[in-house]
Amino acid sequence: MKRLPLELTVNGEPYSLSVEPNRTLLQVLRDDLDLTGAKEGCGEGVCGSCTVLKDGNPVRACLTLALEAAGCHITTVEGLAEDGVLDPLQQSFIDHGAVQCGFCTSGMLMTAKGLLLRDPKPGKNEILSALSGHVCRCTGYAKIAEAVEAAADTSAKER
């Protein structure tokens, strides 16, 4: 198995790495770059807790080869806050108690972020549909959807 060079940008920082082809984006983020916000739940693309943004769109990091992310801009949950100030979405999750055990939270946040980037004012149905690929084993879905809705309101007002 030949190691191959990999250039990618994570949370605005450029990285030059050398990776084995069978390493997933999730492994590289967590093991090589110490960005442990994205979690491995099922490892099969079903649960959504490994979700990160690839060029602004949500992907399963567990089913994305690191090499397939070459040249892309990756955003993980660690990249949401700017200069120590939480993203409105993160603040909204806190305010609405949309975090229980926390395992699914980073994936929920990243999919929600991707949605708000595409559509700053999504309707309730769009939010539910976007989040539908995520599993919260604490079943806290209602508060999560409310938190995203409120964050969309806030950022729309700021604009």
Partner: peptide, 10 residues
């Protein structure tokens, strides 16, 4: 197919 926000981008 799959889930709207995820599989659709891959």
């Amino acid at each position: 197919i799959g889930a709207p926000s995820i599989q659709h981008f891959s």
